[in-house]
Amino acid sequence: MIELKHVTKSYEQNRIALSQASLTLAQGEMAFLTGHSGAGKSTLLKLIALLERPTQGKVMIGGVDLADVGKADIPYVRRRIGVIFQNPYLLPDRNVFDNVALPLQIAGWPSGSWLKRVRAALEKVGLANKEAVLPQTLSGGEQQRVSIARAIVNKPAVLLADEPTGNLDPDLSEEIMHLFQDFHQVGVTVLVASHDLRLIAKMKHRIITLKEGKVVNDGLDKHSIT
């Protein structure tokens, strides 16, 4: 589903974020991306979400070379990818329901179809009773769950998360990771960047380790369950 072939990304002043990185994620696979800060985790995810373009190499999603996706087509690719960040990035002036419905609105779903899908997404993250409240009245963990509901409401094929538990305490973090596992179990390809090694070791999935922009360890044999 996701394929990186010899991807290099360098920024100005010759700072190299990724260097000849290659990896393949099968459809429905779940993997963790780890490494020290600055190892290139975020850059890798950004390349997949088309937030950055590689300097060299190829990034492919579902058989489509992202180099062929023009600027005008980027939105349509992003609609198939759910992205979650450390910061939930919710709209403070809209309630939980409207925040979660945003991707549906953007993709042009009829407003009549929102209710069912938003409710289903909120139920999945355990916030079914919070749809009418504003985000700032929620706890950090709840806000992150709203952002996950927003990421999955459109039923994306790929879910990317960049340090989704960075602001959360260990119990909440584990809860969030289990949520990702649930989506993986219904066939979504999940890639989670996290430096919380203790937590991701517990999850027993493939672990890809980056160091200075290179893939130094791909724990496919040790942890993969599929």
């Binding site: 058989g63 489509v64 062929d68 996706v69 087509d73 690719v77 609609r79 198939r80 993709a107």
Partner: peptide, 14 residues
Amino acid sequence: MKTQSASRTLQNPP
């Protein structure tokens, strides 16, 4: 042309 097919493959048609 390629771009169009790219977006079509990845689009989530309502």
